[in-house]
Design a binder for these strands. Structure first.
Lengths: 223, 223
DNA sequence: AATATTTATTAGGCGAACCTAACTTATTAT
DNA sequence: ATAATAAGTTAGGTTCGCCTAATAAATATT
């Protein structure tokens, strides 16, 4: 019943899942996956052949790659493990936002159902990781995405910066000039009707930012 | 500076360390190691060749296997990681005494110095694992062995059973008849001068056991 | 000392996962 | 429609860790 996959097989499934979800047609190409995994297209081809025979990927020769529901289930559980571990590292072991990923990448391959079940309850059934990304439950359901952009935060509420959209140098310069970094706490004082701009309270300082700016900053609401 | 070893190389070092320590001459044979790792002598030979070239094992062709101090250091750090993880699983994730090993066997191969440093402080710098075995510190020092046999426990002190010596059926039957199992708490009420026998308080019941019996039960002192 | 036995090593192969180079099929542009 | 480009596949080769079978060295026995 319980299929045992190698670390590599798992990595392929996870990457494939990510790509297929992003390309919202649920498909991906060989080269795309190769690029993502820093591996040659030939290697991908071989692995896909194997995953196909294990009924985790469905696709015909020369056709686009698509995952079976079983393949997706496995990938989602890997995401779950990854994000639970990130949460643990962040909350209990004093890892910073940007350090968690690398270690979680290793931890997610540990094989033990009990481990992940217990880790989950130890963490109090969290529904999002330190980056604000949602943690799917045991059955694979992502509740609601708890990662929001700054523009979605209501007046009077506070939030913590978890990431910024990869954007122009100008944007990043502006970000740092405002004193915004990862973990920065921001209180949204006002929404202004006229131009949808926002007044933010960052530390002791008030700043006025445009809607466009706010949409490029990702935050996690304070609970 | 920091040598990166494969999971297999690490497993060989750990097993070799265990064997060489047990054979208190600090040496081991190829076949012995092969037996321990459930692998053919030929495989061991190949790996030893590699470890030798990495200066982790010192031994000449056809000679007994011996570890270099660097090899030992690495092995001890693996033991440290293993036991810290066991402690974590046991104390925080509700794993039982006999479930921890298998998962710790996987977790000990995670590469991250910070992880183990933080895990250690999270656990409060423990000096022994749930089996009562000592946890070496960052520099590789085993403080004192905190695993004791029941006969070493002073009058009036309490302890918890962590293991029993592999022994005769008769002994094991006696153990279970007294209501002793893993995790059982035992209070040592008296040492009797006459025959060195002990009076134990197990739960509500008092029992009289011989010195020989007490020496075959391993316990961890209550802190 | 000569032989037998145990222990260590080499030789030759297999599977997983990687690579490069060459090829085929599909798509796009002229 | 045909040629050029992009995308997917195959072939042949590498490394790592494993195997079995055959050999060489060390140790034990007569």
């Amino acid at each position: 019943m319980d299929i045992v996959l190698s670390k590599n097989e798992e990595d392929y499934l996870k990457a494939l899942f990510q790509i297929t979800v992003e390309s919202n047609m649920g498909v991906a190409g060989t080269n795309q996956l190769a690029l993502n995994l820093c591996v040659s297209p030939a290697s991908v081809n071989g692995m896909i052949k194997k995953l196909r025979s294990k009924k985790l990927v469905k696709s015909e020769r020369y056709g686009k790659l698509e995952m079976t529901s079983q393949g997706k289930t496995i990938a989602i559980q890997l995401v779950r493990k990854h994000r639970l571990w990130e949460t643990f590292l962040y909350q209990y072991l004093d890892f910073s936002w940007d350090e968690v990923h690398e270690v979680a990448e290793q931890l997610e391959h540990i094989k033990s159902d009990k481990l992940i079940k217990q880790l989950n309850s130890f963490l109090g059934n969290p529904d999002s990781d330190p980056h604000g990304d949602p943690i799917p439950d045991e059955t694979g359901n992502f509740s609601k995405k708890s990662k929001k952009n700054l523009a979605q935060i209501e007046e009077g509420k506070s939030c913590t910066v978890v990431s910024v959209k990869d954007a122009s140098v100008a944007f990043l310069q502006m970000v740092s000039k405002l004193g915004i970094g990862l973990q920065t706490e921001i209180m949204v004082k006002n929404h202004h009707e006229f131009d949808a701009s926002r007044t933010l309270l960052i530390g002791e300082q008030e700043h006025q930012v445009s809607l466009k700016f706010a949409e490029n900053v990702f935050v996690k609401e304070r609970v």
